[in-house]
Amino acid sequence: MRYETERTRRRGHADTATDTLARGLGIFSIALGIAEIAAPRALARALGMKGQEGLIAGYGVREIATGIGILASKDPTPWIWGRVAGDGLDLATLATALEGRNPKKGNVGIAMAAVAGMTALDVYCAQTLSRETPHPLPPMQDYSDRTGYPGGIEQSHGAARDFEVPRDFRAPEAMRPYTQPQTPQRPMPSM
């Protein structure tokens, strides 16, 4: 996902393991987001957070957007930091469900532990990606003399016009370039 362009090459060498972790977090984000959008009522019921269905679905949209950002961007670092911020929001929201007489406090505790675990993973991934020291660009290889034409391009351009394209590879006659036929010149009437 990174290190494929002049811009991304500036970041140095790819760390495939961290990239794979980032990709995994992106997929997880999308899956969680789909679950939150598809079943906000069930989640609210399980966490004793009735009335918060809209908020849960909204968090689902956030998760999907972050997941797409991670998977589609050349550098997922800011998106992983975005996940860390989202984890904080999730933990704060869950903490509100611990207040009062919520009969599902046990489930909330389990959910908070799971989010804390994911937060640790997100922080590790984001820090590892951020720590990569930008190396100076190695000098670009100069391939400007790699023509492939021993006698020069002028000599080779069109050198294979003698090649007869096989019948089954030829363009249909009707699709060949159309040339306007010359209209016959009418003799001008003599004055």
């Binding site: 362009t5 670009m140 391939y143 790699r146 034409y149 080779s156 351009h157 069109g158």
Partner: peptide, 27 residues
């Protein structure tokens, strides 16, 4: 190179890796 050998008027290469584009221009 094949399109050049076969006499195309103009050949255009699309990529984003600088070295590859460099080699394409050479061709």
């Amino acid at each position: 190179r094949s399109a050049i050998l076969l006499g195309a008027k103009q050949v255009i290469a699309i990529d984003r890796v600088p070295e590859r584009l460099d080699m394409a221009r050479a061709g």
